[in-house]
């Protein structure tokens, strides 16, 4: 890999890693969501330093170009993130529903108590 390309790729990968770490440190991102991101950015950093690993993976999965290997894994990563979000959203929706129902019932029971 040309040096220029390596520097750009490394800088981006490293920045992503730092940003995620910083977000978790400041508690803007919960740890449970961060591991997938950290893992991926760490993977990216390793791949930019050790290009031969990328070539080896490319060979192993039967791809022709190292770039397709990167795209392939990028798509898998995005899919995993989406699935993780869908699971969370389903759970949150359920929790919001339960809370809404509880509030509604508590409020009604209060009104009834005041009435009697």
């Amino acid at each position: 890999m040309p040096l220029k390309q390596e520097i750009v790729a490394f800088t981006i990968a490293f920045s992503i890693f730092i940003v995620i770490l910083e977000l978790v440190r400041e508690k803007k991102l919960r740890e449970e969501y961060s591991w997938l991101w950290l893992l991926t950015s760490a993977g990216l950093i390793i791949l930019t330093i050790r290009y031969d690993i990328l070539i080896w993976i490319t060979y192993m999965i039967g791809a022709v170009l190292p770039t397709s290997t990167l795209f392939f894994f990028a798509i898998i990563f995005l899919m995993l993130v989406c699935i993780q979000f869908s699971i969370r959203i389903s759970r949150l929706t359920n929790q919001v529903k339960d809370l809404t129902q509880e509030i509604t019932i508590l409020r009604a029971n209060n009104i009834e108590k005041i009435r009697t």
Binding site: T100, Q101, I105, R107, A108, E112
Partner: peptide
């Protein structure tokens, strides 16, 4: 009637379940 009000629209099924829970 005694009225139980959802703070926002939740859908028919949720309304029913609120009634069941009550």
């Amino acid at each position: 009637a005694l009225v139980l009000s959802h703070p926002f629209n939740m859908g028919y099924g949720v309304s029913l379940q609120t009634g069941y829970k009550y």
